[in-house]
């Protein structure tokens, strides 16, 4: 019988430090997955942690060094092996939103799962309408996939805008290079600076605190709740709905993020208490 807890051993094909805290890994793995799904990543001896897939072309993860497993992962280099299980979770409804306009809203490390959406959309560009990408960062140093994103700014495919909190010389230079693309403030300020179509589908990922602000902003602007999707984070230990660490909500409306999520709509947020 298939043992869901048994990790598959995969080789690390490539690594790169993205920022002083985040490291990117390309894994030598064949996986059938959807943007927004996550993997349980193992480093034998350090343990296991849920990490979302940050790619669509191949299997890549972007890991922030915060705990035991992530620190151990950071020690791993090209050619080393790690364990993976999954993919788990529902993922974003990419098929259902075909033909629609999209706005992707990422905050900090929330960039990782949204990069998977972005790559998917770019791969299937014709299937989607206008694509806007809002990315909120603290400072340029914390910007993930910087080269890729700056390259994207030069193209017409995606309307990419960055909100930053701390301005420095480099940002000032980038502002000159890409006028109207860098804005000071939180990610929500981009909704004021950039004209958006409120009939768009919106895909959000960021730290827990960000959802409240983003949802509030979108409600003010008149977006449709059923068109807003977000991906949530919890401490999923099993990924299969057993360990119950990721329970949200109360009573019969409660959900397990690993099984019923991690992607939920703003309608779910209304029905499931404390989802965001």
């Amino acid at each position: 019988m298939e043992n869901e807890f048994l990790p598959r051993r995969v080789r690390i094909e490539e690594t790169k430090m993205m920022t002083s805290l985040e490291k990117w890994f390309k894994l030598d793995a064949q996986l059938d997955f959807k943007p927004g799904q996550f993997l349980e990543i193992s480093v034998a001896g350090a343990g296991e942690a849920p990490i979302s897939i940050c790619s669509w072309n191949g299997v890549e993860i972007c890991v922030r060094k915060v705990g035991r497993v992530s620190s151990a992962l950071h020690q791993r280099e090209k050619g080393d092996f790690i364990g993976i299980r999954g993919p788990y979770g529902n993922g974003f409804p990419m098929k259902e939103i075909e033909g629609e306009k999209l706005i992707l809203v990422a905050g900090g490390l929330g960039m990782a799962p949204l990069r998977s959406v972005l790559q998917y959309v770019l791969k299937n560009r014709k299937k989607y309408g206008e694509v806007t990408f809002f990315y909120g960062i603290k400072c340029l140093e914390m910007m993930l996939f910087r080269d890729e994103l700056l390259k994207l700014m030069e193209e017409e495919n995606v309307n990419l805008h960055i909100a930053y909190e701390i301005e420095d010389e480099e940002i000032r230079n980038l502002k000159k290079r890409f006028p109207e693309r860098f804005h000071k403030g939180m990610v929500t300020t981009l909704f004021e600076k950039v004209k958006v179509n409120t009939e768009s589908f919106v895909v959000v990922c960021g730290p827990p605190i960000m959802y409240k602000f983003v949802l509030k902003k979108m409600e003010e602007l008149g977006f449709y709740k059923e068109r807003i999707y977000m991906t949530l984070e919890r401490r999923m230990k099993c990924g299969t709905g057993k360990c119950r660490h990721c329970v949200v909500g109360i009573g019969s409306s409660s959900k397990l993020i690993c099984r019923d999520g991690p992607v939920f709509s703003a309608i779910d947020a209304e029905l499931i208490r404390e989802l965001v």
């Binding site: 915060v66 827990p208 019969s252």
Partner: peptide, 30 residues
């Protein structure tokens, strides 16, 4: 404590009353 904790240190059930309600919800709500 660790039950509702996520990687960045945020705890979804930081306070005891939240934990008690979650327990009752799991037991009697579900």
């Amino acid at each position: 404590r660790a039950h509702g904790l996520v990687a960045d240190g945020h705890n979804f059930r930081e306070r005891t009353e939240e934990r008690l309600r979650n327990r009752l919800s799991c037991k009697l709500g579900e």
